[in-house]
Design a binder for these strands. Structure first.
Length: 460
RNA sequence: GUCCCCUUCGUCUAGCCAGGUCCAGGACACCAGGUUUUCAUCCUGGCGACACGGGUUCGAAUCCCGUAGGGGACGCCA
């Protein structure tokens, strides 16, 4: 039987990093096994489910290039199926109607907790003789009364829980809406899911779900419960995918970074999508929770910025430059600038920040740099430089480099004496890529006019 | 309270399942040097961990038990 997995987020919020990792492990496993990856939206929470979040989830999956083979399938459109299954369980005696009120149940729960007992449903309605259909009621599943349940989890190994821990939970509410622990089983079996890969906050639920599979007469799938990400917070991945996208992270980097949280392949840190698919397996998935570390994400992102083709990088960079108010579009020059600047930034946003001077001459000069390098004695050399640039036959880094060296030689000045004033004139500070490439990145008129404007600094 | 899971450098992890080759390896971060026309990149080096206590064994990060700490679950949420 071919592998079928599903990623089943609820649409009660944006896709955060923890969910993305779960989606990723599902995706990688499916691809590794040549199986299918299905997206199912768990939208049975009438209170909190929102269509806009469904859209947001789909958008995030697209951006991350993890599009499902099937779906999105909405649970809210499958109520007929759930109803049918509830009725059949009622018929077969695996489920029963319960007339207890929420108030009663809540009181019992609190009392149990207060007495240090396990908050479990009493089973009061389990064996009722009179079970009217027209009176307000929920439907509960009958849990086994003795023995224990063992699963062989791909990540957690063998885990056993005594049925003492379980109670007859509600599978259909008073309002007729089925509950999670029921629909998840109905759907996973109906959709022929072979491997349920989810966060280990569901590990305990699994033991409630196994009896449901049995009551339904189907074989439970294989489970893989991934350890949760520890302490998610605003700085630690609780924000949505789009937030990271907007902060200038590349989808490749996010995927690469997330893949290494709880999974490893020897000492390798950087993985292409193909490598991830090829190497992924649950043998290499750890059982302990890991922390989202933005420093490392930054590093992975910077590595991916270096790996991308400069043109590709530049195209992705455009919106970030536009955000900063620069009127740019993709062209060869932008690709050159991106290639030149990518070593000095870890995100696209940061790269836009440090590249502002390429797109606007409205910048401040660094006072201490001016003080240190704009020496009036060097005016003749700098003027010769400008004239040389204006006369240069070929406008290239190499040609500009030759000019700098010869002017430096003629005036008996080291390269730094010419390079630093050039940087200050073109960028406002002494921090920039190689001056020759820097100058070449501007068109000739722009470069020389900034240099002439810079000459004024000599007198200050 | 009860049940389940977890515990190697600050963080991500290798090693653990098949005990010795581990006075524990790699990566991020940090610190120090080097390369360089500046900065960044890059290179080299440094700092830094087997939670604790028992046991098994000639030998334990690796196996067993316990303790502590952390997380999760216990809902007419998913």
């Amino acid at each position: 039987m071919s592998v079928r997995v599903r990623f089943a987020p609820s649409n009660t919020g944006h896709l955060h990093m923890g969910s993305v990792r779960t989606a990723l492990f599902n995706y990688l496993f499916a691809r590794n096994q040549g199986g299918e990856f299905i997206l199912r939206i768990e939208d049975t929470d009438r209170e909190r489910s929102r269509d806009e979040y469904t859209e947001s989830i789909i958008e995030a999956m697209q951006w991350l290039d993890m599009e499902p083979d099937e779906g999105p399938i909405l649970q809210s459109e499958r109520f007929d199926l759930y109803d049918e299954k509830v009725e059949s369980l009622l018929q077969s005696g695996h489920a029963y109607r319960c007339y207890c009120t929420p108030e009663e149940l809540e009181a019992q729960r609190e009392q149990a907790l207060a007495e240090g007992r396990k908050p479990k449903y009493s089973g009061k309605c389990r064996d009722l003789d009179d079970t009217p259909d027209d009176e307000a009621h929920t439907v509960r599943i009958k849990m086994p009364t003795e023995g224990s349940i063992t699963i062989d989890d791909l990540v957690q190994g063998e885990v056993t829980v005594s049925v003492e821990e379980l109670d007859d939970f509600i599978i259909r509410r008073t309002d007729g809406v089925p509950t999670y622990n029921f629909v998840v089983v109905v759907d996973d079996s109906d959709m022929d899911i072979t491997h349920v890969i989810r966060g280990d906050d569901h590990l305990n639920n699994t033991f409630r779900q196994i009896p449901v599979y049995r009551a339904l007469g189907v074989e439970p799938p294989t489970f893989a419960h991934l350890p949760l990400l520890a302490g998610l917070s605003k700085r630690k991945g609780s924000a949505g995918v789009q937030h990271y996208r907007d902060r200038g992270y590349l989808p490749e980097a996010l995927i690469n970074y997330l893949s290494r949280l709880g999974w490893s392949h020897g000492d390798q840190e950087l993985f292409s999508r193909e490598e991830l698919v090829e190497y992924f397996g649950f043998d290499s998935v750890g059982k302990s929770p890991s922390n989202f570390d933005e420093d490392k994400l930054n590093w992975v992102n910077s590595e991916w910025m270096k790996r991308l083709d400069p043109s590709d990088l530049a195209r992705r960079w455009v919106p970030f430059l536009e955000d900063k108010g620069f009127d740019v579009e993709f062209d060869e020059r932008l690709a050159e600038i991106a290639e030149m600047m990518r070593d000095r930034a870890q995100t696209l946003v940061e790269m836009a920040d440090v590249s502002a001077y390429f797109f606007s001459d409205d910048f401040e000069y660094d006072d201490s740099a001016v003080e240190k390098w704009m020496d009036p004695d060097h005016r003749p050399a700098l003027e010769a430089l400008i004239e040389g640039l204006e006369a240069l036959e070929e406008w290239s880094g190499d040609a500009i480099g030759s000019l700098y060296r010869s002017v430096g030689k003629e005036h008996g000045l080291g390269l730094a004496k010419l390079a630093q004033p050039t940087r200050i004139s073109l960028t406002g500070s002494t921090t920039s890529p190689s001056v020759f490439d820097l100058v070449a990145a501007f068109d000739r008129d722009e470069a020389t006019s900034r240099l002439r404007r810079g000459l004024q600094l000599l007198d200050e």
